[in-house]
Nucleic acid binder design. Sequence first.
DNA 1: GTGTTAGTTCATAACATAGCGAACTGATTT
DNA 2: AAATCAGTTCGCTATGTTATGAACTAACAC
Lengths: 163, 163
Amino acid sequence: MATTNEKKQLIEEIGLGIEERLSISPLAGRIYALLILSSYDGLTFEEIREYMKASKSSISVNINVLTQLGYLTYHTKPGDRKRYFKITKYYQIQSLELYLQALKKEMVIVQKINSYNSEHYPEKFSAEESLGEISQDYLIKFQSLIKDTIQKITELRKNDHSH
Amino acid sequence: MATTNEKKQLIEEIGLGIEERLSISPLAGRIYALLILSSYDGLTFEEIREYMKASKSSISVNINVLTQLGYLTYHTKPGDRKRYFKITKYYQIQSLELYLQALKKEMVIVQKINSYNSEHYPEKFSAEESLGEISQDYLIKFQSLIKDTIQKITELRKNDHSH
DNA sequence: GTGTTAGTTCATAACATAGCGAACTGATTT
DNA sequence: AAATCAGTTCGCTATGTTATGAACTAACAC
């Protein structure tokens, strides 16, 4: 596993984004990024450790966090004590599901703002009523776009597995 | 300005979301939330301070951060030294623009992952090629959905201002 | 020119978090 | 039973962030 400079940089970049989106530690983000870019067999604890040049304890803690959050799984090989880690889901589905969650929160907030304003500033609110509708409309369209895409990807995975 | 319990709770809730999305301090998030829910005239420094029950220095720093980031503006009244603060943009547009930014980053990352994989794991990648296409397709659709919605809202605001 | 208003700036306290090394555990070899 | 392997757990340090009080400033009022 030659650590190319390209890979290092890419892990840094992807890791940073993941760290923010999943609200996990920088190291956890980089581990997740490494596994996105790594082979299908999965990497061992030691391989991850080598790559990250971090302590055993940090690797242990962060792998466990990622596993508990459901982003990683591991499998073992007969007669081999090591665990092989890889990402649970396609990176893309993971992202979409996060958007879906954020969206639900957003919808609740928008509704609350609308109902607060309609109660407390009825004149102001009625002037903006269609604005509230547009937002609502947008959120619903977005939601169905995500759901469609998740379904497409899921179907693709099924076909992929069955051949 | 009677501080109803409903308003307090709502500010807490909206503020928390904003804080995370804009990566600003909790107080800045709550100030922004307060201004979302407050009247069109804008609130003074002292009104905000009273509402938040925070120190002058904290209010000052956080108002300035929000102003510098372009989320707040202030206007003055003749013969009155106070500044009246209100949000620059509709909360909804703000949200959408943030999504747009996040999306651009996302598109860059997805492209980099795809090109990395197509180079380093061509067999694996070709099996998933259509998956990469779906992601790309999704991102583009999402982008145009956001842009449409921003445009609709912007038009609505123009009409709203001009009557 | 003294006081007041409307904030700003600065040093600091309080708190949270990440990653580290060292000691430990539990299973497997030798 | 001693050693090794594959990790885990714990206490601690380093670092970053938020909000604070106290001192300061700039404009206006008397």
